[in-house]
Write a protein that binds this DNA or RNA. Structure first.
Lengths: 137, 137
DNA sequence: CTCATTGCAAATGATTTGCAAGAAA
DNA sequence: TTTCTTGCAAATCATTTGCAATGAG
């Protein structure tokens, strides 16, 4: 069986997670870096990326990797939907049922003037599927 | 009133559009470049990007700018949904109603083993909205 | 001690842009 | 002619990676 790599509790990791969980916005890695730097002036952007990646893989936070702009991070790992501003890139949580929004595209939601949506299903295609055993590398 | 820039009909543009419309896959800009190069060996990748961008803005093709990977292009400009392979990045058209897929996340669709979906609404946020008159630049 | 993690800097890789030459209209 | 487009190369920009030094356990 695979040997689970021993994980350490560094202060960088703690601060990065703490800063992300503190805000309700959905900051980019660069913004998380700025936030973390106020407490750890020497923390590097690379470390921020590495930790956000790691925390996402562990399901402690979630990476919002949708189109149009940079990746953003959400301190809340639970599955929920977002609205994004096409002008400034800001993202907010969506407090409505997506099925309703999809069926009758509304003009307004959460204070946003809604212009449309992006929806895509993800999975493994028929050509890749025969490799069922091997993880996506 | 804004003066609409006069557009020219170059052979590069024609070949790029033609090649994209010829395939049912959803190629990346680099792949479109390879396809176009078979007919116009000197066409540059920059030109491919510029034309795909322009054709998308005119609603002749559509840019698939969802997360996870590179932008892909679809010769069919009509609004429809896609399934994407998390392993190889390939994208196919979805031949099912997204509302049903959203409600009961299925295991299978279009030959893909479905793992999940990405959905995001896009619009103008309250802070940007006061600039109603000015287009998104 | 060990080896996971960091800071730093350099590397990537997709996309964009500046500019002089080329070609539609 | 005019000026939209192109090819080319260099520039961006977010993200990743290599590596020696650091520090958690």
């Amino acid at each position: 069986m695979p040997h689970r790599k021993q994980q350490r509790n560094t202060k960088q990791r703690k601060v990065i997670l703490d800063e992300l969980q503190k805000v309700s916005s959905h900051p980019t890695a660069v913004q998380v870096h700025e936030m973390a730097r106020r407490r750890l002036p020497k923390v590097s952007l690379g470390t921020v990326y590495r930790n956000l990646e790691l925390l996402d893989r562990q399901g402690i936070i979630q990476k919002l990797d949708l189109g149009g702009a940079e990746i953003r991070f959400d301190g809340n790992p639970d599955h929920h939907y977002h609205v994004r501003c096409v002008r400034c890139g800001r993202a907010d949580d969506l407090h409505e049922l997506p099925e309703n929004l999809l069926r009758v595209e509304p003009k307004e939601a959460c204070g946003y003037r809604i212009l449309g949506h992006r929806l895509e299903f993800v999975g493994i295609c028929p050509d890749c599927d025969y490799e069922k055993e091997c993880p996506p590398c």
